[in-house]
Design a protein around this nucleic acid. Structure first.
Length: 422
RNA sequence: GGCGGGUUGCCCGAGUGGCCAAAGGGAACGGACUGUAAAUCCGUCGGCAUACGCCUACGCUGGUUCGAACCCAGCACCCGCCA
């Protein structure tokens, strides 16, 4: 089972850790570990994927994993990795988000079978606690002097400041670890590298409360960085969510497919659950023939399979080939067309004879008529893969494929369908 | 509680009465080149009408003025120092 650690190392997935030797030793037997996910939005996003997949790797290796949803910490706000104070969300909002995030976590881990994962919310043990109890039993073990030295706090002291609320965050997370250590025999906490300060806080607390004989470990995965220096997981349209309602499976697939060549090797190592040797083969194939983008295709396929299912992925691949290809759209059989465009944004708001400008706006490809006019002027608007040259062009019914659909494209990457109706 | 500084378009940031839809940078978008990549070059970058023009916009609410992002008053929020 210690193979897992060397596998992680080979993938570059270990940012920092407590004594790896001791951890490896304890992993000779199945251990219990946890990772926390705060509900800071209604869905998890691709940035949560690395720690999430880390839990999965541990589960696949036979360890007992606990996924923790931050029902309590989500009400407070983690200062780690943020330069400004968070806005507080209402109880109701967070409660709703907890439920949604909980539902998503269930997709990634196995909750049945002989090694089921466990799902908890830290509100279970934090909620009933009184302020006095918290200050006496937990607060007393934390030295403010030491806390001020933590990266997450220090950065804010030099910057925009920090509220007492967020300052206390680390105590809550430390308490979580202690609780899980006691009640679940949890001896490892994993998380993103920005969680290192919070994790060590928990380790300190466990040692102080449980004595020097206690054994608890910490492990963090690196932050995913991109060659161009921009933040991973964000696009012009915002974050890439795991929720199909917020980021369509099509957009999700396209996000990975558009990965920069310079990043693809690392991305594959980080995100793929396939054995390292296979991953390296894919990387090599991609590097031998960059135009094939073998790495991007493999990554997009694997993650779309995982998050949205194989069936969706197959449709999306068909769509990508047909809609972005130079192929003859009219030759596409209706059934394939239907499958291919299932995840493509579609509007029914326009009918035959509508202007291309209106159609571009209705599909969301352009934000306004002005923008649509510009797109046409710049030669960036296409109907059925044909560039539109006339400002006044309209969607003649003769353009309709299979009698009703018209493919609209803005630039190279954005496509949508106008359903002219029957 | 006192004093000082701040609030400009997606972000940063100029602008202190008309020449301001508002410099500059970044992001983003389109085109060329490619591979739905990167880099580079060119262009666009509030909305409607794409002609004139009109509307909306510089924290909020009022005021001064022929005219205000720019002056005045009040309010809100942020930052810093002091208590």
């Amino acid at each position: 089972m210690t193979d897992l650690l060397s596998d992680l190392e080979a993938r570059g997935l270990i940012a920092s850790s407590t004594d790896l030797g001791a951890l490896a030793e304890s992993m000779a037997e199945p251990i219990t570990l946890y990772c926390g996910f705060d509900p800071t939005a209604s869905s998890l996003h691709v940035g949560n994927l690395v720690p999430l997949l880390l839990l999965r790797r541990f589960q696949l290796a036979g360890h007992k994993v606990i996924a923790l949803v931050g029902g309590a910490t989500g009400l407070i706000g983690d200062p780690s990795g943020r330069s400004t104070e968070r806005n507080l969300n209402t109880d109701d909002t967070v409660a709703d988000w907890v439920n949604r995030v909980r539902g998503q976590l269930q997709h990634f881990l196995d909750f049945d079978g002989d090694n089921p994962a466990t799902l908890v919310s830290n509100l279970e043990w934090t909620g009933p606690m009184s302020a006095i109890e918290f200050l006496r039993d937990v607060g007393k073990h934390f030295s403010v002097n030491a806390m001020l030295g933590k990266e997450s706090i220090a950065a804010r002291l030099n910057g925009d400041g920090i509220s007492y609320t967020e300052f206390s965050y680390m105590l809550l997370q430390s308490m979580d670890y202690l609780h899980l250590y006691r009640d679940h025999g949890c001896t490892l906490q994993v998380g993103g590298s920005d969680q290192w300060g919070n994790i060590t806080g928990g380790l300190d607390l466990i040692r102080k409360v449980e004595g020097p004989e206690s054994r608890a470990h910490g492990l963090t995965v690196p932050l995913v960085t991109k060659a161009d220096g921009t933040k991973f997981g964000k696009t012009a349209g915002g974050a890439i969510w795991l929720d199909a309602e917020q980021t369509s499976p099509f957009a999700f697939y396209q996000f990975w497919l558009n990965t920069d060549d310079r990043d693809i090797a690392n991305m594959l190592r980080f995100f793929s659950l396939r054995p390292v040797s296979e991953v390296e083969e894919v990387i090599a194939a991609g590097e031998a023939n960059p135009a094939s983008r073998a790495g991007q295709r493999a990554l997009a396929a694997e993650l779309t399979d995982l998050v949205h299912g194989v069936e969706n992925r197959e449709h999306i691949e068909a769509a990508s080939a047909a809609l972005f290809g130079r192929g003859d759209l009219a030759a596409l059989p209706e059934t394939i067309w239907r499958q291919a465009t299932e995840d493509v944004p579609t509007t029914t708001a326009v009918s035959a004879g509508a202007t291309v400008i209106d159609a571009l706006v209705a599909t969301g490809l352009c934000d306004s008529k002005s923008a649509a006019r510009r797109a046409i002027k710049e030669g960036g608007a296409y109907v059925n893969n044909q560039r539109v040259s006339e400002q006044e062009a309209n969607l003649d019914s003769s353009l309709a494929l299979h009698g009703r659909w018209v493919l609209l494209r803005r630039g190279k990457r954005s496509i949508a369908v106008a359903d002219l109706g029957v």
